[in-house]
Amino acid sequence: MYQDFIVQKWSIWPPLEGQESDSLAQNELLSFVPKMLKRRLSPLARIVFCAASQCIEEGTYLPAVFSSTHGELAKSFKMMEMIEQGEEISPTAFSLSVHNSIAGLFAMAYKNKQQCVVVAPGEEGLAAAFIEAIGLLQEGVDDVLMVLYDEPLEAFYPSSPYKLSMATSCALALRIGKKGFGTSLRLSMQSEVGDDGEQPLQVPLMIQFLAGKQEKLILQTPRHSWCWEKR
């Protein structure tokens, strides 16, 4: 079993050759967001928007698949600390702490009324978002926007022996379709098992694969492997 699709465009945030302060570039990419909405964007939401903005042309509205292992967990953690201290929690923080809150803000900021899915992929890693996006293509959608993002997991959470966090935040956006110019990829499942870690560890490997000459990317999970192959 395999699935073919084309990566028409991809982008990341922060940039690979990032300077210490990307905040100017970030502000520029976010300049279209109304001020009253912008104040609601967390650092994670900002990098999602910055990565996605580079994959979308103005005035085009795409169905979207968001995927994040931890989402806005940092926000939930802060609220739990406040509860522990006996303080009342912020209704704004509460409303923006759920797993699909960034997707909701995205829909508002980009005026995107297309369907939208948010995945918490666990050990399947970034394959889960690809499967979801390919499913949308098979339903007849032309192009799909994918955004894969995570920030470092709060040190409070005991994660060992699972590999599920990186030291830095990163967002990778892709626009995939059945047709169009770009990189043709084939996704297939294979039987080898292993542990390449969850999505936060896989995203940098996917970026390397997309940016470089490497023909294949195989990511092993405890149940099977996923293979992305350039055609």
């Binding site: 009253m36 009342e88 912020s90 209704p91 704004t92 409303s95």
Partner: peptide, 13 residues
Amino acid sequence: LGLDSIDALELGL
């Protein structure tokens, strides 16, 4: 000012 319902809750708090 353009505040919304979440702002009302936040301001109330």
